[in-house]
């Protein structure tokens, strides 16, 4: 995705579909973060309500509104996936170019004091955080 296309994609949609677009993006971001249940809840409630409202205020419910919603969801899913991939590529490049390996090491700590529960303060860490550490170790070549 070029920068122009990215800017274009972030341009607000015209009412009444702007709220639908925002909700679609939230759902896709939640799915990208592995929070499927939360995404499903929003899909079933907020998105359903926003889409019904937009349909009523537009040309009414029907195949055209359905198709528009499906297109918006597919578009947002693709955008989020592209952004994630973009970040995956960009982060190590920036880190290397700036000579700052701290970002990677912060994700893959050596734990010199080897204390238990050295993760996120004040609570149980999520499994996705552990996986992130594992992947960071792979990238840093420490595993």
């Amino acid at each position: 995705m070029t920068l122009n296309a990215l800017v274009e994609s972030l341009r607000p949609l015209e009412p009444p579909w702007s709220e639908v677009g925002r909700t679609c993006r939230r759902i896709c971001l939640l799915r990208a973060a592995g929070r499927y249940a939360e995404a499903q809840r929003i899909e079933d409630t907020e998105l359903a309500a926003a889409a019904a409202k937009a349909s009523r205020e537009g040309s009414g419910p029907g195949p055209e509104a359905d198709a528009r919603l499906a297109t918006m969801l597919a578009g947002e899913a693709e955008r989020v996936a592209a952004a994630v991939a973009f970040a995956e590529i960009l982060a190590p490049m920036l880190s290397e170019r700036l000579g700052d390996r701290a970002a990677i090491h912060a994700q893959a700590p050596k734990h010199p004091h080897r204390g238990p529960g050295t993760g996120a303060p004040g609570g149980v860490r999520g499994i996705a955080d552990f996986i992130e550490e594992m992947l960071a170790q792979d990238r840093a070549g420490t595993r």
């Binding site: 799915r31 990208a32 973060a33 592995g34 499927y36 989020v80 996936a81 994630v84 991939a85 970040a87 995956e88 999520g126 499994i127 996705a128 996986i131 992130e132 992947l135």
Partner: peptide, 9 residues
Amino acid sequence: AARAARENQ
């Protein structure tokens, strides 16, 4: 782990 993994992982 499969249920918790993020999309980009």
